[in-house]
């Protein structure tokens, strides 16, 4: 399907230094990340395509990345459930609040 280009991806880094390479369009589901990547000159993140989240654990960040992709699919008409394990709920809500997601 779509051609892969490195410029179209961003790397999100968790508190423990785990890296998630995801499609930029998916990452921009988050208003916070969108601002970081698009506001001219203000964030070093924009140049390198890397964003570090020292406050977000690896498990939560992976769940967030899954949510971004699910959200794109949902927006394009594929209505499926997004499962959230109860033990993740609180931390996930805090991260979502920070990310404006």
């Amino acid at each position: 399907m779509t051609e892969m280009r490195k410029e179209d991806t961003v790397k999100l880094i968790s508190a423990e230094g785990f890296e998630f390479v995801i499609n930029k369009e998916a990452a921009m589901v988050s208003q916070t990340i969108r601002n970081m990547l698009t506001s001219p000159g203000s964030f070093a993140e924009a140049q390198h395509g890397e964003v570090t989240f020292p406050e977000i654990s690896t498990t939560i960040l992976e769940k967030i990345c899954q949510y971004f992709h699910w959200s794109l699919q949902y927006a394009s008409g594929k209505e499926t459930e997004f499962p959230i394990e109860p033990e993740l709920t609180l931390e996930l809500m805090m991260a979502a609040n920070y990310l404006h997601t």
Partner: peptide, 14 residues
């Protein structure tokens, strides 16, 4: 989700 060591690549595909 393609994983190796501490990195995960989310690859969109059909």
């Amino acid at each position: 989700r393609v994983k190796r060591m501490k990195t995960t690549y989310f690859i969109q595909c059909d």
